[in-house]
Write a protein that binds this DNA or RNA. Structure first.
Lengths: 149, 149
DNA sequence: CTTTAAATAGCAATTAAATTTCCCATCCCT
DNA sequence: AGGGATGGGAAATTTAATTGCTATTTAAAG
């Protein structure tokens, strides 16, 4: 990964729709060389995938809630049962196993209060869940997918 | 937004690289009709943008930390100064204004402990910052960009 | 330093594919 | 029945991906 690769990644992180031709121009490289590099980045797994981003607000899912989950215990079986189950909850956008107080931290999205109640209920009844505590986001100040290179 | 639009969004959220031809086939629609719908979704702002996702781990930024920030006060000027400044910190992937305890919750990415110390220092010295408390993610269990439709 | 080998860039031509446009048909709601 | 919205098909245009080869650069070894 040299400077050119970083340049390519930066451009594509901003706009994944650029054609190889456009990209080549932006990074000041020939088309063939540029394509070669992109392919390598894809194969190496540095480039994970290309996606389209939907505006949460525009589809009525503008509310973000952070949920701290504590489990009944920390045995491997309890954890993996919970983790398997959490994958199936579509409103969970992120789920991290945490150090400190709670066992997991989730970001979930919801339409409104009633919707949250429904999801809260789902979470509460997931296997191994002991306690869930929620904090609501009032506003998203920063929301990026571009990682600094 | 009817069922067809949702179908289109679902497909494109999974893979933003599909050509209109491929997409049309997947959602069982003619190319022209499909293109028309995508254009409308783009213009309406429901489709926000297309991006390439980099594998955090693969570039050495595999650590996620959650930082709760409390400010000196809640006057509009304090908030907006902080918010403006936080935009300039590249390691901050998400920043939400929160209800409850802390004023803001951030997700930041870092290389390692030393890197975190550096970033912590940056955050601490942002305008208006009173206190920062960090929790580390030990592992990412779920990390999605697809919102349920 | 100089030589050599490997890696990477550039160029150009080919091949293939996708976007866009236009018009007509159809469906649906009032 | 009428009008608005949406779908289908196909042609025309534009654009991009891919390839093979040569030149150049880089890095390592002598």
């Amino acid at each position: 990964m040299d400077e050119l690769d970083r340049k390519i990644l930066k451009v594509l992180q901003k706009n994944g729709k650029f054609s190889n031709v456009q990209l080549a121009e932006k990074v000041a490289l020939s088309e063939s060389a540029c394509l070669r590099r992109v392919k390598l980045l894809e194969e190496s797994g540095i480039i994970e995938r290309y996606v389209m981003l939907v505006n949460q607000r525009a589809v009525g899912l503008g509310n973000n809630a952070f949920v701290r989950v504590t489990l009944d215990g920390q045995q491997r079986s309890v954890l993996s049962q919970f983790e398997e189950a959490i994958h199936e909850v579509p409103e969970v956008m992120e789920c991290y196993m945490m150090s400190g107080e709670a066992d997991y931290l989730l970001r979930i999205i919801c339409r409104d209060n009633d919707d949250y109640i429904r999801i809260h209920d789902v979470l509460t009844n997931l296997p191994g869940v002991h306690r869930v505590q929620t904090s609501f986001a009032l506003r998203a100040v920063v929301k990026k997918t571009e990682i600094p290179l």
